[in-house]
Design a protein around this nucleic acid. Structure first.
Lengths: 257, 257
DNA sequence: ACCTGAACACCGTTCAAGT
DNA sequence: ACCTGAACACCGTTCAAGT
């Protein structure tokens, strides 16, 4: 979204590269972020990053990502849009901050019923938060992968799989796959929810589409198409979660533990 | 991205709603799409939707989603941007078309070695295509879920799980979970790939970030953090795929087949 | 019928000038 | 030191007028 960069005429070598600010959402950017924010001294009773994020979440909740413009945000505080650039360097930075902020809502309580119940609880909790949050999770996820709140979740998941008995490298891979599955599912489900007019899930439209499919092809869809269109998203997730946990159990047995 | 809609003053009832064109990417929109395109009669030697998609893919490959402007596309054909609106009604429509077009590259060959090998092949093939395609898959996936090429893939997956012995509803849920997992993983991997400068995967930056974590918390990350940062994305996917297939096998046994 | 110049109503970001 | 008016360089989309 940066529209008029200095065009960087040609092939600026790696020397120049070091002088460029790290990209929003990168590990480097998150490392520096707290220090950057701390040295800001806003005028009395004024803007803080926390208040800006709160207002941005309201705008997102009303109008989605495209409604979140720097100008709309400035209007909320009755200030000029230029003023906000004292708190973030670009709209992308703002989105990274919001993305991580929201993941702070994920509770990491232990169930006391073993790793499988704990992983199940963590996955469900992540899903709950992602679905309830107004930022399209694809945008949020990429930008906040290294944020402090996301690291908290990674640490918790990693801990559970280590506790279950997986070696370091398998625990790491399993953690990443788990996050990919939960976040990927929630991503699709939240975008599908707002599809049709008036909360229609689109399943009626899909059924009509199925009827017009050529009879000779799409045989599986003709056989089980209705099950496909009418499956409630929460049931699909519960089923996917069971598959994942069964799979981990199976891997655990193979590792010889 | 529609900037100046008629604002739809207030609460247009469901009566009006029927007169609105279906949203790009919805089942209704895909149902009508072919008919809409067929009745177009472009001037000699002129633009076709296929050629526009091809040019759009080139622009995407060079500059990503933000470089794909209607104006840049028009320049490619030495025409005015207004002319392109004869082929699609909005930028969103164009993105839906590209998203589905790209999934046409997924090959659906059978391995002849049973459902498990076939599912594995299908998942790997989907991953290959998503990673090789220049549209950020989150945008593409939402818009093309009901496109003809995506339906082909759904039909294939559904067929394999039915063949494996799952009942209709379980096959449907398993299919959806599989797609969510594969697409979600590929989504993250492709965005992470372009993160650092010069193809740096960002793992060095992450390692530095880990070093600064408070010693008392983040214990799992301190123990297995390096395994987490250095896990090659393809290994992670292979591992997740194995977990998923083991899980399905386990469900199959439970269903009593 | 198809095409387009010109306009409309927006964007994110910068910066010189103000307090 | 912080803040901002005004500008810059873009957007997607529409539509009257041309061919």
């Amino acid at each position: 979204m940066s529209r008029q960069l200095p065009t960087e005429s040609d092939e600026s070598g790696p020397v120049r590269q070091e002088f460029l600010a790290p990209k929003p959402g990168s590990a480097e950017w998150w490392t520096q972020r707290d220090a950057t924010d701390a040295k800001r001294r806003p005028r009395s009773g004024g803007l803080t990053t926390a208040r800006i994020i709160e207002a941005a979440l309201e705008i997102l909740r009303d109008g989605g990502l495209e409604a979140l413009t720097v100008r709309a945000l400035a209007e909320r505080f009755e200030t000029s849009n230029a003023s906000l650039y004292r708190h973030f360097a670009s709209r992308d930075e703002l989105i990274a901050l919001i993305g991580d902020h929201v993941m702070g809502e994920v509770r990491l309580d232990r169930t006391g019923r073993g790793w499988r119940a704990d992983v199940e609880a963590l996955m469900s909790e992540m899903r709950r938060v992602i679905l309830g949050q107004p930022l399209p999770s694809s945008a949020a996820r990429r930008m906040s992968a290294y944020g402090p709140n996301m690291l908290r979740i990674v640490d918790a998941a990693l801990g559970l799989f280590l506790e279950a008995g997986l070696p370091n490298d398998e625990a790491a891979r399993t953690t990443i796959s788990m996050i990919n599955f939960v976040a990927g599912s929630a991503d699709i489900d939240r975008s599908a929810a707002g599809r049709g007019p008036r909360g229609d899930t689109g399943s009626a439209g899909f059924d009509r589409l199925l009827d017009r499919l050529p009879a000779d092809r799409f045989q599986a869809l003709r056989a089980a198409g209705h099950a496909y269109t009418s499956a409630p998203v929460d049931d699909v997730f519960a089923h996917g979660l069971a598959i994942f946990l069964d799979g981990v159990t199976s891997q655990l047995a193979a590792t010889g533990r």
